[in-house]
Structure formats: structure tokens, C-alpha cells
């Protein structure tokens, strides 16, 4: 399913000319949630992330002049919030591993889940572990192309890049992804 619908939803504005947050939320929240899930990876709570994104949207709504497409504007906010969230998540994971310092080493409790769910989660974590080693500009383009199945033009619209730049990033992202994938499997064997 393509991520970005043609931006046909009428852009409803309040009488003051400022876009209406509630309509924006109702119309775009599911799409934003999908972007957020894709960009942030499997270890992030999507409800929290969507909440954070729309807090930023509300704060920055008065600045929105309608010069860019609303989806482009929302995507850029999502991208920034997801990046910040990934950073925090990295810290949190590190903290939960390191919090016992020199004093104690504990083993995290294992949660029993169906095997296929565990496998799926592991694969997903592997993909994002590899993706996280790529520069953000390559990583995001690869996610949008391979996981969200957007076309080059759609990616260009969403990210504000030129289509040729999108393809350059994508080619380079693929080369790096394969190299990191090999390195990752070497490390694990």
C-alpha cells in the first residue's frame, strides 16, 4: 500500500487562516504513525511518538504558511522527532544495560512469545541495526523506497530532495546496506 496518498484531502483551515489541528490529526495521524514506525524502528512506542509529533505540529502550526504540501511538512516533523526518539532510545537501551555499573550485573527477563513473533522481531531488529549504521539521508530514503514502496518522485516530494538526488542516495544506501549486512552476519557467526 503506498504510504502517501495523493494530497487530495481538503486542507481545512480555521477562520484565522491557521490549519485546524484536529482535522489535521484525524486526516493524517495514521499516515504519520506509519512513517514514524518505519523511521524509528521496532523498539519505539508508536503512540508516544505520534503524540510527540503532534505536540510539535501544534506548536509549529501558526508558522505553517501552506508553501509546502502538508504531507511534506508533516513528514519533516516526523523525521526529526523520529531521529530524536531513536537517539533517546539508544540511550535508554544503553542505560538499561549499564545502569548497574560496577555493582551488579543482571540478566534482563526473557518474555515468552510465539516463535514466529520472536523471529519476526529479530529480523526486524537486524534490519534496523543495519539501517542505523547508515547516514540518516541514505537510511530514510532506503526505508521509504524499500519498506514503504514509494516511487522516487514521491520520495522527492516528501523529503524535498531533487529526484536525481533521491536516486543517488538510494544507490549509495544500497551499496552501504549490503556491506553492513555482510559485516553484521560475519560478526554473528
Amino acid at each position: 500500500m503506498p504510504l502517501v496518498r495523493p494530497d487530495a484531502t481538503p486542507f481545512i483551515e480555521s477562520p484565522s487562516g491557521v490549519p485546524d489541528l484536529e482535522t489535521l490529526y484525524r486526516t493524517h495521524a495514521p499516515t504519520v504513525a506509519r512513517w514514524a514506525a518505519r523511521l524509528a524502528g521496532p523498539l519505539v512506542d508508536i503512540d508516544d511518538l505520534v503524540h510527540e509529533i503532534f505536540l510539535v505540529v501544534r506548536r509549529r502550526l501558526p508558522e505553517f504558511r501552506g508553501e509546502a504540501k502538508v504531507t511534506t511538512w508533516l513528514y519533516r516533523i516526523t523525521e526529526r522527532v523520529a531521529l530524536e526518539s531513536r537517539r533517546k532510545d539508544r540511550f535508554r537501551r544503553w542505560f538499561s544495560r549499564a545502569r548497574h555499573f560496577e555493582i551488579e550485573r543482571t540478566i534482563a527477563p526473557t518474555h515468552l512469545t510465539p516463535v514466529d513473533e520472536v523471529e519476526r522481531r529479530q529480523s526486524s531488529e537486524t534490519v534496523y541495526r543495519i539501517l542505523d549504521r547508515l547516514p540518516a539521508k541514505y537510511r530514510n530514503v532506503l526505508i521509504l523506497f524499500e519498506l514503504e514502496e514509494l516511487s522516487g518522485e514521491q520520495i522527492a516530494t516528501l523529503t524535498g530532495l531533487k529526484p536525481a538526488t533521491v536516486w543517488v542516495h538510494l544507490h549509495r544506501a544500497r551499496v552501504r546496506f549490503v556491506a553492513e549486512m555482510k559485516r553484521d552476519s560475519e560478526r554473528r557467526t
Binding site: 495514521p30 504513525a33 514506525a37 508508536i46 503512540d47 503532534f54 519476526r120 537486524t126 534490519v127
Partner: peptide, 19 residues
Amino acid sequence: LLRSAAAVQPFGARNLAEV
């Protein structure tokens, strides 16, 4: 590898209302 990571949880009506 990418196929295995493709699925994401849908952001359903419950999530929408909660947020």
C-alpha cells in the same frame, strides 16, 4: 531480510483515540 521487517502494526481507531 527487508521482507521480514516490512510489517508494521496498524495505527487503529483505538490508538487514534488514545493519542
